[in-house]
């Protein structure tokens, strides 16, 4: 697909922010791959190393996060599933404390209690969780609260395409439509629910079509395109802020890594990911900025350095932080 200047109806600063955030997000996951592998070689053991447990990385899925978060402020809510890093970064979650949480440190967002699937940063109204589709009703609640408070805030629930087949998806959208809530459900279609391809889990071609079932709007973004995602989101967020109700946006995106780190990925062709990487959205947006004269080589290089420094700083903060005292496990069950 060609991108012409006419099509890029996006403020330059937004475009640069999207680029920087995608670079940061991608580099974050690269660093996380290394950190996660530490202590897990030569024998992989999910419980070993400085970052144990399941690790679901978002490499390749950055366009979904930046395309819509470019329209959000810290007053808007984002809920995210088990693969949350790109959403958290795009929403402006404190990178140091997020990383410390992933390393299980006391300086983490949840003092080490939550881990990578359970990040909560109320400062920027971000949360995520490990149960499929469970974040959608929470976003409905946030949207309801915004409406009750008379604010023009919106709530965005990110889910994978697999979640569209879970009961929580339907109940939430029906309710949000009924109450005309400022909710946007972003379905990241990365083609697989763990090993099961989309075609093996639903007879619906794309999940924006389901919008008709709830009497709301739907949009579909092809080719993992951050620009198209930005434009579709702009319209959905505008409608939500104007009290015109919910939208489903499905984006065709790509998961370059396994469902979790250590996934043998027997369910997909070995050539699939290398081919996808050839049409990488970060490269595409960089080429676009250069060819359209939006940024120079020097500028993009500066952006990259800045983005990576944020990640490196967060990494060092996390590594240097202390573990919680073991008996702290008993705290925080109830608020005191």
């Amino acid at each position: 697909m060609s991108m012409t200047r006419e099509r890029i109806n996006i403020p330059v600063e937004k475009l640069k922010w999207m680029y920087e955030t995608m670079v940061k997000s991608r580099y974050y996951e690269d660093v996380m791959v290394e950190a996660y592998n530490e202590g897990k070689k030569p024998v992989f053991n999910i419980g070993a190393g400085p970052v144990p447990g399941e690790m679901h990385l978002s490499t390749g899925q950055e366009p979904a996060a930046v395309g819509i978060c470019a329209h959000l402020t810290k007053d808007d809510t984002v809920t995210s599933p088990h693969r949350p890093h790109h959403h958290a970064i795009a929403k402006g979650v404190d990178l140091n404390r997020m990383t410390a949480e992933i390393f299980g440190k006391v300086t983490g967002l949840g003092k080490g209690k939550g881990g990578h699937m359970h990040l909560f940063d109320p400062e920027v109204k971000f949360s995520c969780g490990g149960i499929i589709a469970a974040g959608i009703p929470h976003a409905v609640g946030a949207a309801l609260a915004a409406k009750k408070k008379g604010k023009d805030w919106v709530a965005v629930a990110f889910v994978g395409e697999g979640a569209a087949n879970a009961g929580g998806f339907h109940e939430s959208l029906n309710l949000a439509a009924l109450w005309k809530l400022p909710l946007i459900v972003v379905v990241e279609d990365n083609a697989y629910g763990i090993s099961v391809p989309k075609s093996g889990s639903t007879a619906v071609a794309s999940n924006d079509l389901r919008a008709a079932a709830y009497g709301i709007e739907g949009a579909y973004v092809r080719n993992n395109d951050p620009i198209e995602m930005y434009l579709a989101s702009e319209e959905a967020v505008r409608r939500a802020r104007n009290g015109e109700g919910p939208t489903i946006i499905e984006i065709e995106t790509h998961r370059y890594l396994g469902h979790f780190q250590g996934d043998p990925e027997m369910y997909r062709d070995k050539e699939e990911v290398p081919n996808l990487r050839k049409i990488d959205p970060i490269t595409k947006i960089r080429d676009l900025m250069l060819s359209e004269g939006i940024a120079t080589e020097e500028e993009t290089a500066q952006i990259e350095v800045r983005a990576k420094k944020d990640v490196d700083d967060a990494y060092h903060f996390a590594r240097e932080s202390e573990y919680p005292a073991p008996e702290d496990a008993l705290k925080d069950v109830f608020s005191s």
């Binding site: 299980g104 440190k105 949840g110 080490g112 209690k113 359970h118 573990y323 702290d328 069950v333």
Partner: peptide, 15 residues
């Protein structure tokens, strides 16, 4: 003890 399972290793091993 009556707490959810914590993530961080020293916390989980404690419970």
């Amino acid at each position: 003890p009556d707490v959810p399972l914590p993530y961080s290793r020293p916390l989980e091993q404690f419970v």
